[in-house]
Design a protein around this nucleic acid. Sequence first.
DNA 1: AATCAAAATTCTGCATACAGAATACTTGTG
DNA 2: CACAAGTATTCTGTATGCAGAATTTTGATT
Lengths: 229, 229
Amino acid sequence: MALEAADLLINEIDSRGPIARPTLHDAIVARVRDMIIEGELTPGTRLHEGNLGKILGVSRTPLREALKFLASEGLVELSPGKGAVVRKFTEKDVHDSLIVLGSLEGLAGRLACANATDAEIHEVRQLHDRMMDMYGKRDRLPYFKLNQSIHSAILRLSKNEALVSVHGVLQARLKRIRYIGNEGPEKWAGAVADHEEIISALEARDAERLSKVLTAHMEQTWERVRHAI
Amino acid sequence: MALEAADLLINEIDSRGPIARPTLHDAIVARVRDMIIEGELTPGTRLHEGNLGKILGVSRTPLREALKFLASEGLVELSPGKGAVVRKFTEKDVHDSLIVLGSLEGLAGRLACANATDAEIHEVRQLHDRMMDMYGKRDRLPYFKLNQSIHSAILRLSKNEALVSVHGVLQARLKRIRYIGNEGPEKWAGAVADHEEIISALEARDAERLSKVLTAHMEQTWERVRHAI
DNA sequence: AATCAAAATTCTGCATACAGAATACTTGTG
DNA sequence: CACAAGTATTCTGTATGCAGAATTTTGATT
């Protein structure tokens, strides 16, 4: 019967968690965030509500809500009565953020050593190996994405939701810059050495060593990214 | 002439920075946040747009914008099609957040030792002395507020905007709980000892010691606050 | 031609209106 | 009396309308 098929469908959905009908303003948040990261909207650009709304094909109401959200993430700035502009990050802003990110990742590493399962660590090892593969081929974009995945994974393995969340916000602010920074001259060697030590420290569950190298790794990121600001 | 008075007024305003006309949704963000912190809106409470809007005397549009903002701060949760509820924090959520806060404050302390001026450190000393005065009088609320001020001040002295901002978000989430936690039995002695060491390490610009005691201080906060969840 | 004032336009901030989903209620049936 | 189906109501999501602030354009004067 058709009824059974419907029931199966519902179970399928339920087993994947509550049904989250996507809403327009959430989609707009994601879309505008991507537009900023991908450089379609450059820092300093004014985000006219009517204008941008027409481009995205939405009315002003959900767009305004999305802008409010992005403002609290720190990606856009709202001046009352003036409107929204894509936030400009100074060199100091970026450096400051990287210092905090380094500290957060260091903490995440320490916690991951204590809280991750062997299987989870093995998954990171596999990401690492695939990344090294891409490094061998000098295949930049997959390398970049796997790199990001490894860092996110370590955050997840800390099993600390608050940590994941604050890291995510800060990470989002810098994504654009890291994206550009990666397009520069190839200074991969150092980063790769760091990553070798990261995965080995994680497998050894050496919390202190992992924490140190993750924090130090950020300073290198700063050097690689600096020119892009 | 009247003209001169007006000019003076304009200069007065200009010297205080650009005129930021307060907007309704910003006011709502602040108001609702306070209502949550002060317990007027308890975790799990549904925030009906029409209902709450009538209470606050505003229409749904700015209220929705405010809720979006608070959602990204993590104080309320939005389920599409269902509405907003005041977020419930599990015991683990709180513990996780405190661990991150401890790490962030530790970093702030380290940076403050490097970046604060002598005058700024002296200001913190004065806050500390006033706080100890309130401790002597067992005057709870001023003690609590001065305590918060000292921690915020150390964050400021780190001169790291990103750090201040992520700390602020996490701090806001826990403010309610710390508020209640402080109402419990008086376990001030340990906290006071910590604070003595904090100010002394700061004055000595002993980054390692300050960082350690700030991080450790959070664990004590956890014990003091634990019962309130 | 430059500058300043004033009018016109544009844009934001807020309220309201409407459609569709979610929830509560009612009523009928076993 | 329990329960299910259908209806009614409420609430969210989005669009639109309007008032006032901000900006741009225009025009006048020197």
